[in-house]
Amino acid sequence: MPIQASHSTDGQVLTIRVSGRFDFGAHQDFREAYERSGLTPQRYVVDLQDTDYIDSSALGMLLLLRDHAGGDSALIQIVHCNPDVRKVFSISNFEQLFSIE
């Protein structure tokens, strides 16, 4: 479950890339990806380019990230979703909480 986190050079954007299955197995790594860095980015990008599948626990993890990033004022973009992943976001109406591209 490789999860990679990288900061933009100015430290304003934290990008988290998830490869493979994004499910409960990613819980620890995903959390560490945004908690470990000492920096406080202005916004977050979750890149799902290489994510094949997400389940409802992944949705839960995204809600945790949203809470960590300030709840309603959080700036989180979820990008590069494949159609299956997109469908899961759409069923759960997460467009209301995240910017999904």
Binding site: S56, G60, L63, L64, D67
Partner: peptide, 9 residues
Amino acid sequence: ILPIGIFCC
């Protein structure tokens, strides 16, 4: 009552 991240579809 539910912690953040736990919800019910």
